[in-house]
Design a protein around this nucleic acid. Sequence first.
DNA 1: CTTTTGTATTCTGCATGCAGCATTTTCCGT
DNA 2: ACGGAAAATGCTGCATGCAGAATACAAAAG
Lengths: 228, 228
Amino acid sequence: MDEISTLDRPTSGGPGPIRRTALHDTLVNHLRDMIIEGNLEPGTRLHEGQLGEQLGVSRTPLREAIKYLASEGLVELVPSRGAIVKRFSGKDVQDMLTVLRNLEELAGKLACQLASEAEIAHVRALHDEMIRCYRAADRLQYYKLNQDIHTAIVRLAQNATLADIHQMLQTRLKRIRFIGHEGPEKWAAAVAEHEEMISALEARDQARLSDVLGRHLANAWERVRSAL
Amino acid sequence: MDEISTLDRPTSGGPGPIRRTALHDTLVNHLRDMIIEGNLEPGTRLHEGQLGEQLGVSRTPLREAIKYLASEGLVELVPSRGAIVKRFSGKDVQDMLTVLRNLEELAGKLACQLASEAEIAHVRALHDEMIRCYRAADRLQYYKLNQDIHTAIVRLAQNATLADIHQMLQTRLKRIRFIGHEGPEKWAAAVAEHEEMISALEARDQARLSDVLGRHLANAWERVRSAL
DNA sequence: CTTTTGTATTCTGCATGCAGCATTTTCCGT
DNA sequence: ACGGAAAATGCTGCATGCAGAATACAAAAG
């Protein structure tokens, strides 16, 4: 029932060279989503035969996708025993957040220096939209926009490597953050921090933006800490 | 002539469970080395058939290895056209160094807090050994120890994610650094920086260690900048 | 001589087959 | 009934086969 048709292969009808997506690439995204969304829990063995049949693909592209995810750190390869979904310890998560915090602090500094007014306005727009979702208590959309904002700020730093690594950590942590559903009061605090972030960015106040980004993640860390 | 026998499959004769290494894993390391050492220049297409025959392996594990390296960012996958060795622009390198600098600064701070005396002594030992190579003008060994020291310091931070990402960037830049052969005067300056690094670490002076690590990389950046 | 179109070759992408290792089950000895 | 060895099953790892896309080449038209 989870056939190949279910695999969301991008069918962009737009102009330009039509996307010729390879199956292994599609599988990477599909498996990544499955892991993040918890369809594949940590410790689960990725049986090539079974999983391949379930998805309606042969083992070859599946294996290739698994190798890719292994390099991303989402699965672990055990020689002669296949791959298992990596389990992150509390310290692992803390470590990732430490690095993520440092990277966002850096991104904040660079963003203040390099962002154009238009780009900042765009982030502001995302922020306003997010606030709207907050008021509407639309947690899902709020969460998505939240991530988008962080990603957008990192992009402002105009540093591909920084963006890539940030994205990777964000992806790994996404799974964890599904757990950390903060209460209303913490949620309000997070929104306040976001408000300050945008204001610091608009003022191009490097130190303040960097600081609030750091605090923001430190709080996220607190939330996760209590959830584990 | 580059047969499978040439592939350095780890034949640890030591105790413990004998390493059953998979071919695709061996290939990852082999290809990575080939790219770093310039046997495969940027822009080169990785022909599965030809390369496989040259290395004496079939296409399947080779393809898996390529997917892994693609996730590492060393090669680029072009749909229906295979993989090419990624070419890094000057800005790419600068971006990586910016991130690397930030990470090392973080590592320096953490190392001062977390390292044991024994660990610091070990780094000191590596340093002394490196100085010996410097005096003997043994560039190759010097270079290796240099990297080892940086890696060691990062390990002191006791943060797996930090260590992983650092390693990844270090690997990507390794290829570039082969170019940047600094002259004697810069070399001396680098050695002096290292001296200060160790001294700051021994004094557990976070700010100073972080600072000198940052300066050290900034100088490396200067060297590369002139070489491009 | 340049451009274009049709063809041939090469290469990638995916599926499948087979051998070896890991694990489980079974059967025998105690 | 219990422990252990040996067979049996299942799975991974690697090789190969085949279809389709991309490219190179060649011939013909302008």
